[in-house]
Amino acid sequence: MEDFLNAFALISNFVLVPAIAYGSQLALGALGVTLVFAILRFSNFAHGDTMAFGTMVTILVTWWFQSMGISLGPLPTALLALPFGIAACAAFLLISDRLVYRFYRQQRADPVIYLIASVGLMFVTNGFVRFIIGPDDQRFADGERFIIRAREFKQMTGMAEGITIKVSQGITVVTMIIVVAALFWFLNKTRAGKSMRAYSDNEDLALLSGINPDRVVAITWILAAALATIAGTLYGLDKSYKPFTYFQLLLPIFAAAIVGGLGNPLGAIAGGFVIAFSEIFVTYAYKKFASYALPEEWATGGLLQLLSTDYKFAVSFMILLLVLLFKPTGIFRGTGV
């Protein structure tokens, strides 16, 4: 029994807790991609770098607050700076929509043209971010670091294995729940949200019933900016901020959105957790877990790792391929095949 509890604590510490936090971040990122897809009907390759941009502004404002001595006590100051990041990111996306995408919308261009334009925008954003903050790692987390330390947990329970929960992980999950609740309330209850869903379901019918398309598109970009900035900041607080990492996040985020069904918000959340859990489950080394969970005679010398962490992107890719092979519409039926 003792061994069983220890094995469970070990798994919670190294797999469940990190996967829940990572899944929340992916879910928020995938929600942004899926919203843009539902309304504008293209996969936004610039989303990863939009996250990097919003996070960059948040970091800069955080540093400014820190230099002025403003802080949130035990919570990271970045939370206070978040609204500024969102505002700047929204402005950035609205300007880029005005300069780039609006033209193609008026032309009723092919979706693939949007795709190429978004790749172009991705590199402009990427260059801009690197130009301002540099390509290196940046640290901006402050406040308390842990909710529960492994040592305290061990003292409390008297077990051999402890569970560590970082403040950033706690904040990630709480923020994710709040943001998702607010988003669904907005989409289902408000007039603007309903017009968005109508536009997504049937563009022509929505236009006929007097919905202003420019307004719908603008709201979409603002929501995408908010989701991207929040996801990026939470990821940066939890791990670290490096512009290139955000470009690499694009693959798991797309995979999450497609697994759930592109264009379906509920699917994006589910997809985020599917990807995060599979990634961490597959790349975790089960050696110590096996020492608790299995009889001693079965012990082996290996790490018992299914896949080295170097290939964590391969996990999201494999899942993506499997979904495309067997159920291209995703778990929750999305709009696009």
Partner: peptide, 20 residues
Amino acid sequence: LRTDYLAIATLGISEIIVAV
């Protein structure tokens, strides 16, 4: 499937090839 899927899948396979 949609053109998007080819784009995303090629992005993925190129990352994996380079990782290997």
